[in-house]
Nucleic acid binder design. Structure first.
Lengths: 162, 162
DNA sequence: CTGAGTCGGTTTGATTTTCCAACTAACTTG
DNA sequence: CAAGTTAGTTGGAAAATCAAACCGACTCAG
């Protein structure tokens, strides 16, 4: 049994699968994209993503329940809320950036699309490096590590802020 | 009209949305994860992801039609194929890595899960930097750029290999 | 040669999700 | 007072997904 095998019948439980349970539902990443771009209100998020309102409601509740976004009240009467990224939510930026960069390299077609830039003004050309060794992550440099659960202490700088 | 607004009724056409059309369908990223880990056969991909066989078939066809993976024949009688990442497919690694890193920071709970490492042996701690200015991408450093289509020349080092 | 097993699917029918348009409640604005 | 705004909810149809069974073309053990 090599390290990449799993038991005969159990899907591989890994952090990629876990992340997708929250971020992988339809419209979730697009809603987070909007908040990253400074759009915080329900109607505008619905329009800019194209999600139907009922599904968007459901996604925002899921994201909120996982601490990725929070509802911030901006009106008392009637009660009205804006959606804002938490620290956890802001840290999905590398996912969006990697996705945008991949897509702008490989998904070009006749459709005109908004591209993205780094705040320095340059076209998006992100480089992913390993904080430990400083080397760039090359395709194939992703390896399986050990099983991890809450029993393992979480570094203080990575503790969840709600 | 600020740069983050779209027309009253049109969703924002951007490269994030475009990428999600291919990579955002259920099971697509998990299938690509398996191929990244060296699992190339239908049955094993189905088992390791948990996808049902019919929708996995459909996903693999979609990924193939977008040039993200390719079918490689490994048996003539009966005809049997393995699924392999193309160059384009291998370059989704930063997306998977960013997702795994985010998830291992923010999605810890009682469930034991496989973690990932860089090939140097270190725990996954990726840093995303701008190739142009060398600065790290910070949350909020993603800005909208201009509209782009195929009319724009694609850099030679980014041309699609099939 | 027979029977079991493997592999990569396809088929079937039930379940779940998503979509869309309309509707609502509680306001604000002209 | 009528119209508009905002953040949803509701209902019914359409689409996607699910699980399990089935299939054809093989291989392999006995």
């Amino acid at each position: 049994m090599t390290p990449t095998d799993t038991a005969r019948d159990a899907p591989r439980a890994c952090f990629i699968a876990a992340g997708l349970e929250v971020l992988g539902e339809r419209w979730a990443l697009l809603a987070l994209r909007e908040m990253s771009l400074g759009v915080h209100r329900f109607d505008q998020i619905a329009r800019n993503t194209g999600a139907s309102r009922d599904i968007l409601t459901s996604r925002l509740r899921t994201l909120e329940s996982h601490g990725v976004i929070e509802r911030v009240q901006y009106s008392e009467h009637p009660p009205r809320h804006e959606y804002h990224l938490t620290t956890s939510g802001a840290e999905i930026a590398p996912i969006l950036i990697s996705l945008a960069a991949w897509s702008s390299t490989w998904m070009r077609d006749e459709t005109p699309r908004a591209s993205y830039r780094h705040s320095c003004g340059a076209d998006l050309e992100p480089v992913l490096t390993c904080a430990e060794c400083g080397e760039e992550f090359r395709p194939g440099s992703l390896m399986l590590g050990p099983l991890v659960s809450t029993a393992d202490p979480v570094p203080v700088n990575q503790q969840r802020q709600i």
